[in-house]
Write a protein that binds this DNA or RNA. Structure first.
Length: 417
RNA sequence: GUGGACGUAGCUCAACCGGUUAGAGCACUGGACUGUGACUCCAGUGGCUGGGGGUUCGAGUCCCCUCGUCCACCCCA
């Protein structure tokens, strides 16, 4: 084995890439029907963008970023998530001059983590952001869109959990309350939670350590500390979801790993992914745009992990014969005529490859089968003389000799081609 | 960053307590079948046992180091 891909960075081979393309196509279709347009932001940004958006004390920033100095000495970072770059572009190009902007993006993200099932160092997300809409209906409608997407691509068993994290108006008071509560039970908390008590006590609610779960069982719920605005917003999200027929359970322990979230947060999980069971997650981030120097702009967004969706979809995947023909010429003259014919047939949209191998017809037929082609087109000396070609359907084993002129029509009208 | 499992042919795996020339299935190539794939039968190609060091008369097997994969923790999509 000579040079291999680096750890956590994977090749997506054609069979899987096709599945990915289906996921992306369906996503784009659904997003478009809700009025989203695509934005393509760079993969590398100034490190500062992520420090200021994600938060300096988050795990992502503290230990997971691919950060390096470029030749000028600027600190740059491979994007660990998609929202911050989108918001940066939104501000930079003054897209806020439009009252509501709905954007989606797709592409690779990078986090330096130990790879495991459903988690890689380069991973792909499709995400969408609604910028400039404060209404709880925007939250609910976007969630409905996501659930619809999962339904259309055939992903089964997606479960939606929601929570509200409050806003800068009410969260500080809650943090105090929770801090006091945790302080009383400090002995039973894990070291991690004790360390984070001062900076981000909410993380203790999310901790999976049995001691912490037990200790925080009766912690004061955020819901009771929300200000009138946040509480009303949360109720409205729930009732709108109800009217849209979307089931959502409230998970009052759910805390996101990024600092910019406010009010609604959510996570969609599915079984079959191992420990990494979230397929999509996101929430509202009303303070991010202004925090990065733009105008006050309430926003809601999410990101979906393509690897994880693909992992779940692969369970009911099967190999199909591809809409592809293989051209097999017997002899030099037939080969010469072949390139001419292929040129015409391809012009008519027939997907076709030529088998240039020297082997017997038998071995060449075998190759055609191996690449799972639908048709084998055999041009021998007799066919050549008559202006015909033998067309064999590899799925039915039936074959017929056709005049060159009608081959393209015959093939393209076949079902599944 | 931490813990556990595992690295043997292209793939999936076998090889007893350390013992002769490391095997099988699948795949690949050819033949049975002169121009017809899949099913069947026969034959053949294919290995620095991840890499390095050590113990031993002898290492795929035991010990150490290293690299890698997987799973879990942490965290997250």
């Amino acid at each position: 084995m000579s040079i291999t891909a680096i750890r956590g960075f994977n090749d997506i081979l054609p069979e899987e890439a096709e599945l990915w393309r289906r996921i992306e196509e369906e996503s784009v279709n659904v997003f478009a029907s809700y009025g989203f347009s695509e934005i393509k932001a760079p993969i590398v940004e100034r490190t500062e963008l992520f420090l200021r958006s994600i938060g300096e004390t988050t795990d992502i920033v503290e230990k997971e970023m691919y950060t390096f100095l470029d030749r000028n000495g600027d600190s740059l970072t491979l994007r660990p998530e998609g929202t911050a770059p989108v918001v940066r572009a939104y501000i930079e190009h003054r897209l806020y001059e439009c009252p509501v902007t709905k954007l989606y993006y797709a592409g690779p993200m990078f986090r330096y983590e130990r790879p495991q099932k459903g988690r890689y160092r380069q991973f792909y997300q499709i995400g969408a952001e609604v910028l400039g809409d404060a209404s709880p209906k925007a939250d609910a409608e976007t969630l409905e869109m996501l659930m619809r997407l999962f339904e259309t691509i055939g992903l089964k068993g997606a479960v939606l959990q929601i929570n509200s994290l409050g806003c800068p108006g009410c969260r500080p008071a809650y943090k105090e309350l929770l801090y006091a509560f945790l302080l009383e039970r400090k002995e039973s908390l894990c070291v991690n939670c004790i360390r984070r008590m001062d900076t981000n006590p909410l993380r203790a609610l999310d901790c999976k350590n049995p001691g912490c779960i037990e200790a925080t069982k009766d912690a004061p719920p955020i819901a009771e500390s929300l200000c009138a605005d946040c509480a009303g917003h949360f109720r409205a999200v729930q009732s709108t979801l109800g009217r849209l027929g979307i089931e959502a359970s409230i998970n009052k322990r759910m805390v996101r790993g990024l600092d910019y979230y406010t009010k609604t947060t959510f996570e969609i999980t599915a079984s079959g992914l191992g420990a990494q069971n979230a397929v999509a997650a996101g929430g509202r981030y009303d303070g991010l745009v202004s925090g990065l120097g733009g105008p006050e702009t309430p926003c809601f967004g999410f990101a979906m992990g393509i690897e994880r969706v693909a992992l779940l979809l692969k369970e009911n995947g099967f190999l199909k014969r591809r809409p592809l023909s293989v051209f097999i010429a017997m002899g030099d003259e037939a080969e010469l005529k072949g390139v001419e014919l292929l040129r015409e047939w391809r012009k008519k949209g027939i997907r076709i490859v030529e088998d240039f191998s020297e082997g017997s017809l038998k071995s060449r037929m075998k190759r055609a089968d191996r690449i799972r082609a639908r048709y084998a087109l055999i041009l021998g000396t007799d066919e050549l003389r008559h202006g015909e070609i033998t067309v064999k359907d590899m799925t039915t084993a039936g074959q017929e000799r056709l005049k060159w002129e009608i081959v393209a029509d015959r093939i393209s009208s076949a079902e599944g081609y």
